[in-house]
Simulated scan of single mutants.
Amino acid sequence: MSRKVLISGGTGMIGTRLAEMLIDTGYEVALLSRQPGTGRYRSFRWDLRAGTIDEAAVPYADYIINLAGSSVSEGKWTEERKREILTSRLGGTGLLARELAKPGHHVRAFVSASAIGIYGDSGDQVVNEETPAASATDFLVDVSQKWEAAAHDVEKLGIRTVVTRIGIVLSPEGGALVPLARTVKMMAGAPLGTGKQYMSWIHLDDLCRLLVQMLEEPQWQGTYNAVSPHPVTNKEFTETLASVLHRPLVLPKVPEFALNLMMGEMSEIVLASQRVSAEKVLRQGFTFEYPHLKPALESFYEEE
């Protein structure tokens, strides 16, 4: 039985690790790319601006994992940057939905990324997949809602569709952990804002193992939170990171206004509180290798 996976966004932090893991598990992997043919995987060209995709891409695949989307944590959110964040997600998902509506392919499952940003700032209330979406006046809420709606167009075609609301992905290769670890290492680490806001995180390897399980097992269908079972407050996160890096925390809290000055609207990512439940993926039979923060961080920084 053929086991070919097509990944959009395959050169990003998550896609890179996921592709390695799929190859190790015996899958064949191909990527959708603006500049195909440069890496170690077979790749098909697509161009989101022009709305074009290699006609052979979707017919190649047994499974599609859709991770394409411009990083929300790089660069200030200018109007242009926000447009890019939105169109990179909607354009990619829309293109795939359009191709999947055509006959002549054998795609068995479509696993599409979304983000816990959809819950907005929910304070210390635990939110789960049934929680009504927050008000779309918040940029990340709006992006996530539109992104998920685009994925549901694939579901309407009768293809098993899994929407994965991804939390703060921990990896020393990129994402939120890199600047946080850098400030702690420079002895400038401090909780951000009030420090009471919840961070719902997941270790990169757990996320990739979860995506593989979603792809393989037909009982996965619908929407799931991809977060560890033990979210922590920003203060706990910063303190745990400092202890793993063997650095003191010298500063008091970094005030909210300073973060707004540095990051603009993007400060939402670190200031919004999201205490997201992992109950549904646990009930579905997924086992976390890193359910707790300290061992997750130690897996990256043991040598330091």
Rank of each mutant, 00 (worst) to 15 (best):
R40N: 05
V5A: 10
W46S: 00
G10T: 12
W46Q: 00
R45H: 13
L31Y: 07
R49T: 06
G15M: 13
M13Q: 11
V58E: 02
Q35A: 08
Q35P: 06
A50F: 07
T52E: 03
W46L: 00
K4W: 11
Y27Q: 11
I7F: 08
I14T: 07
G26D: 10
A57L: 07
T25L: 10
L22D: 14
I7N: 00
F44I: 03
R34Q: 03
E28F: 01
D47L: 01
D54V: 05
T38W: 14
L6E: 02
A50S: 09
Q35G: 01
S33C: 13
G10Y: 07
F44V: 09
A57F: 13
G26F: 14
T25W: 04
V29C: 02
G51A: 00
P36K: 03
G9R: 11
R40I: 04
S33L: 14
S8A: 10
P36H: 09
T16W: 01
A50T: 11
I14V: 15
A56M: 04
E28L: 12
L22N: 12
G9M: 03
G26Q: 10
R40G: 02
G9V: 04
R17A: 10
M21S: 07
I7M: 10
L22Y: 12
T16R: 15
A57T: 11
G12H: 06
D54R: 03
S33A: 15
R49H: 06
D54Q: 02
A56E: 14
I7H: 03
S43E: 13
R3L: 15
G51K: 00
F44W: 07
G12D: 06
R40H: 08
E28T: 11
R3V: 10
L32D: 02
S43M: 02
M21W: 13
